[in-house]
Design a protein around this nucleic acid. Structure first.
Lengths: 162, 162
DNA sequence: CTAACTGTAACTATATTGGTTACAGACGAT
DNA sequence: ATCGTCTGTAACCAATATAGTTACAGTTAG
């Protein structure tokens, strides 16, 4: 239904950052994992930064990291940060004002779709990035180990050999 | 989020038909209430007919009417008939297979989005067209009266003077 | 100062939706 | 039988949204 992958990408990005712990990630590293262009990532990172979910630093050795602990970032926060609100759209053009159904269907639909949106938000508000990481971990087999830099000043790509 | 108004239009269409009771409506009448082109309506009617929510008749004095009572048509039926499933989309291109997060985020997102979809379906399954009509009726002031044909063979537009 | 980042504009490609015209086929009325 | 009035559907266009891409100004660590 939705033609946008922004929510999925944003969750992916924040999960990467939770996975990378305190280490800040460059847009190019993230783009490699998401398999897209760094500018696409930076656009989403800007929206996430506006919603205070990440902090970014410009300049050499800059990058982005989570603005708070993973357990304090819900999928609802992310949804609100990167998607336009409302699961469904109403009519493109307002219905006829000469028809009793046409005049009032908008109000009824507005109420119904409000219930739908609430249900979605309810689900999203109960899942945090920490939960996503927890759900992710069992999927990562023991042969997959995250390459973490130890003391280099140049963070390596968040990647795994296998 | 959604860029399609098909669900809203489909609910509008079926509500009109419930309002019109047994009387069959022509796509042009419906289009007038929805404020769009009759072909747009017929396209949606075809999908609704495939899902056995309406029956249409070709030929002179044809038209469409509900295939069953309004209380036996839920918004979930309509949603499934006219929208592609899934509230959110996943990544356009599959993420990197060289990153432990990239490899498995799809599975986790699939589960999460499944929960979201279930919540939406739960809400929609508990609302019928009969409920929509019931919610609509109080909005229609007493000055707004539906013009119903009494015995003519040519149904008039579902419209109201005011 | 320089190298390496982010933020952002501008442009393109692609996809989806809806609006429109046109017409074949169905079917009731006469 | 044929005529007028419908639906079903193809074909096309316009509008919109998304994301991919290039380019570059501005920021910052060293």
């Amino acid at each position: 239904m939705s033609t946008s992958s922004r929510f999925a990408v944003a969750v992916h990005v924040l999960t990467l950052m939770a996975w990378a712990d305190e280490e800040s990630l460059k847009s190019e590293q993230v783009a490699e994992s998401v398999n897209t262009n760094p500018v696409v990532i930076r656009r989403i990172l800007c929206e996430l930064a506006e919603s205070k979910l990440v902090v970014s630093q410009t300049g050499a050795f800059g990058g982005s990291r989570l603005a708070r602990e993973p357990e304090k970032i819900t999928l609802l926060d992310i949804y609100r940060a990167v998607e336009s609100p409302g699961v469904f759209s109403l009519h493109r053009h307002p219905p006829s004002s000469r028809c009793p159904v046409g005049v009032n269907i908008g109000t009824v639909l507005h109420n119904v779709l409000g219930e739908v949106d609430s249900a979605v938000e309810q689900v999203l508000s109960n899942i945090t990035i920490r939960d996503v990481v927890a759900r992710l971990r069992p999927c990562v087999s023991s042969s997959s180990t995250l390459v973490k830099k130890k003391n280099g000043t140049r963070p390596q790509a968040v990647a795994v050999r296998n």
